[in-house]
Simulated assay, not measured.
Amino acid sequence: MTSELLDAALVEEATKKSGLIWVQGSGDAGTGPARPLWHVWHAGAACVLGDGPGEQPLTGLTDGGEAVVTVRSKDKGGRVVAWPATVVELAPGSPEWDAAVAELKGKRLNAGDGEEMPLRWRRECRVLRLQPHGTTLPLPDDSLAAPPPATPAVTREPIPAALPRLLRRKRR
């Protein structure tokens, strides 16, 4: 019983203090990469918002599904704890949705629509609760670094030979 309470306290404190969590949903079939998501800790769960225009993608997270959440240290960036979660989608306009959105609105940075944000979120986005359950998961020993996804982006031309000299000259 004591270890369960310590695990719950660790999950809550680490998740509250971290501005970013890494989430791998069951829809990723355990093979997809974990995705970084901004969140708030509210009422015993991490609440995330996304899948709307200009918002973070919530790929692999389905209502009633499972997810693995990895929390990083805010100052050093290393993994602190990993925990299993149940994904619950909040219904727009419900009291739980309103309370979660009030917390999320306070943490949302760089939003162009200010006070209209909750209305846009109600129309276009999903709000999910990632509710911890069970005990914490062991942290892996390796880096879990994944190769970058393929992209059509390329460098058009090599940089001009004179550019390094021009940049040095401007610093003086």
Results as ranks from 00 to 15, higher is better:
E115G: 04
G106I: 02
P95L: 11
R72N: 06
S73H: 15
E66G: 07
E124C: 09
P95G: 11
T151I: 01
D75V: 13
T86L: 14
S94C: 15
K107E: 00
E66K: 09
R79E: 10
H133Y: 11
P152F: 06
A43V: 02
P152C: 05
R120E: 03
C125V: 01
G134K: 01
A43N: 12
L128C: 12
P132E: 04
G78T: 12
G52K: 11
V80Y: 05
G44E: 02
L130I: 06
P53H: 12
L144V: 05
P148S: 10
L61C: 06
W97I: 10
A111W: 01
A145L: 14
T155Q: 15
G44D: 03
S94P: 14
P132W: 09
D142A: 04
A111F: 00
G114T: 00
V81P: 14
T62S: 11
G114W: 07
T136H: 00
P53S: 11
V71E: 04
A46F: 05
E124F: 14
L130M: 08
E89H: 09
L49A: 08
E157V: 09
L128Y: 13
P84Y: 02
A67L: 10
R129C: 11
V81D: 05
E103F: 00
R156M: 09
G64H: 14
G134P: 01
P138K: 04
G77N: 09
G65R: 07
A145H: 07
L128M: 15
P158M: 06
Q131K: 14
P147E: 13
V48P: 07
T62F: 07
T136M: 01
E89W: 05
V40N: 03
N110R: 12
T86H: 13
R108F: 08
D141A: 11
L130F: 08
D113Q: 02
G134R: 01
A146V: 13
G50A: 06
G93S: 13
A91D: 15
G106P: 06
V154E: 14
V71S: 06
D142E: 11
H133W: 04
T59G: 03
E124R: 15
M117V: 02
S143W: 03
T70E: 09
T136E: 00
L130W: 07
T59Q: 13
L137G: 02
A146T: 12
D141C: 00
D141P: 00
Q56C: 04
C47S: 08
T155F: 15
A43F: 02
P84K: 07
Q56T: 09
R79L: 06
E157T: 12
D51R: 15
A46V: 07
A146Y: 10
V69M: 03
L137F: 04
V68G: 01
V88G: 00
P148T: 04
E55G: 03
V68S: 06
A102G: 10
L109I: 05
E55F: 11
G60F: 07
G44V: 03
V40L: 05
G50L: 06
S94R: 13
S73W: 03
R123P: 00
W41C: 06
G65N: 08
A99V: 02
T62C: 02
P84W: 02
R108K: 14
V48F: 09
